[in-house]
Amino acid sequence: MALDQYKEEEEEEGMSFLDHLEQLRWHLLRSVSAVMIFTVAAFLAKSIVFGKIILGPSRIDFFTYRVLCQVSDFLSLPALCIEQLPFTIQSRQMTGQFSMHITSSLVVGLIASFPYLFWEVWKFIAPGLYSKERQAARGAVFFVSLLFFAGTLFGYYILAPLSINFLSNYQLDPSILNEFDITSYVSTLSMLVLASAIMFQLPVVIYFLSMSGLVTAAMLKAYRRHSIVVILILAAVITPPDVISQILIAMPILVLYEAGIQIAKRLEKKRAEKELEDNLKYKDNE
């Protein structure tokens, strides 16, 4: 193990700055190629990607709305059922539909290729880590991708439709009609989904910070109240100004924060066991 680590360090030291740049260039080229492949595929599948996925939350037969109506029937709460979305989507610019077709295809391509993108990033970073650090971060690509897609699904099926429902039903006066531009609709939907996907990476961030010793479980507990305030502020920034949407995005983030505390506890426990084992070995050698 020590010999392998020495060889790895020797190879890393033997690489020049230009060699690192060359590696980075190829990682970037492969990453961009992956995004472009999925983007082109999404662009060609316009009827599915745009007609069903992008415009899905704007239609009353969307999955989330149908589930809410079923729940409202079961609980006898008619207010839960969303029966109308009083708005229309328009394109007020000549290039509006075409540009949004490209933009939405790029967003779908980015989301679909995310596991490969992170894998390329990890391949570039991993050689600079010690074998012990790589062992501790084993499975990073899987868990980061899992949380990313969980956040994407949460944003698309929960956060986005409820936010769209609120904004479409909000009126200053009955004489004012809600006629949203396609640019506004696509940008709002993309922001909600991507923001949710990024926010769901909180346990991974806590894991690496705890592994590096920058945060501890006790510190996370001590600043729990401050974290709640920060999370609520972030939820207010990325969601429309309605309390329900803000609570919906804040609740899973708070749960993930608590999960991060448990992760930090587990890492500290393993670190303490490892130190105890090393001390015992040291005493036996004496």
Rank of each mutant, 00 (worst) to 15 (best):
residue 99 S to E: 07
residue 100 M to I: 10
residue 100 M to V: 12
residue 102 I to Q: 06
residue 102 I to G: 09
residue 102 I to L: 15
residue 103 T to L: 11
residue 103 T to E: 10
residue 103 T to A: 06
residue 104 S to H: 02
residue 104 S to Y: 08
residue 104 S to W: 11
residue 105 S to C: 08
residue 106 L to T: 15
residue 106 L to W: 09
residue 107 V to T: 13
residue 108 V to S: 07
residue 108 V to D: 03
residue 109 G to C: 05
residue 109 G to P: 06
residue 110 L to N: 06
residue 113 S to R: 03
residue 114 F to V: 10
residue 114 F to R: 09
residue 115 P to W: 03
residue 115 P to Y: 06
residue 116 Y to D: 00
residue 116 Y to R: 12
residue 121 V to K: 06
residue 121 V to C: 08
residue 124 F to H: 10
residue 124 F to V: 11
residue 126 A to T: 14
residue 127 P to W: 06
residue 128 G to T: 12
residue 128 G to N: 03
residue 131 S to D: 09
residue 131 S to V: 14
residue 133 E to I: 05
residue 134 R to H: 11
residue 134 R to G: 06
residue 135 Q to R: 15
residue 136 A to L: 12
residue 136 A to Y: 05
residue 137 A to M: 13
residue 138 R to N: 15
residue 139 G to D: 04
residue 140 A to P: 03
residue 141 V to G: 04
residue 141 V to Q: 08
residue 141 V to D: 02
residue 143 F to Y: 15
residue 145 S to T: 02
residue 146 L to A: 14
residue 146 L to W: 05
residue 146 L to N: 08
residue 147 L to K: 01
residue 149 F to A: 10
residue 149 F to E: 02
residue 152 T to A: 13
residue 152 T to F: 13
residue 154 F to R: 06
residue 156 Y to H: 02
residue 157 Y to G: 03
residue 158 I to K: 01
residue 160 A to M: 02
residue 161 P to G: 15
residue 162 L to Y: 11
residue 165 N to A: 11
residue 168 S to D: 01
residue 169 N to M: 09
residue 169 N to R: 13
residue 169 N to K: 14
residue 170 Y to C: 12
residue 170 Y to K: 13
residue 171 Q to D: 02
residue 172 L to F: 03
residue 174 P to F: 10
residue 174 P to C: 15
residue 175 S to I: 00
residue 177 L to K: 12
residue 179 E to V: 15
residue 179 E to P: 09
residue 180 F to W: 14
residue 180 F to C: 04
residue 181 D to K: 06
residue 182 I to V: 14
residue 184 S to M: 02
residue 185 Y to W: 04
residue 185 Y to P: 01
residue 186 V to Y: 04
residue 187 S to V: 12
residue 187 S to G: 14
residue 188 T to D: 02
residue 189 L to I: 08
residue 192 L to F: 11
residue 192 L to R: 10
residue 193 V to T: 00
residue 198 I to R: 02
residue 200 F to M: 07
residue 200 F to K: 04
residue 201 Q to C: 07
residue 203 P to Y: 13
residue 205 V to G: 12
residue 206 I to V: 03
residue 209 L to Y: 08
residue 209 L to F: 05
residue 210 S to L: 01
residue 211 M to D: 08
residue 211 M to E: 04
residue 212 S to Q: 10
residue 213 G to W: 00
residue 214 L to C: 06
residue 214 L to R: 14
residue 215 V to R: 06
residue 217 A to S: 11
residue 219 M to W: 10
residue 219 M to I: 10
residue 220 L to Y: 12
residue 220 L to E: 01
residue 221 K to M: 14
residue 221 K to H: 14
residue 222 A to T: 11
residue 225 R to S: 14
residue 225 R to I: 15
residue 225 R to K: 09
residue 225 R to T: 14
residue 226 H to R: 11
residue 228 I to H: 08
residue 231 I to F: 06
residue 233 I to D: 09
residue 233 I to G: 08
residue 233 I to K: 10
residue 233 I to C: 06
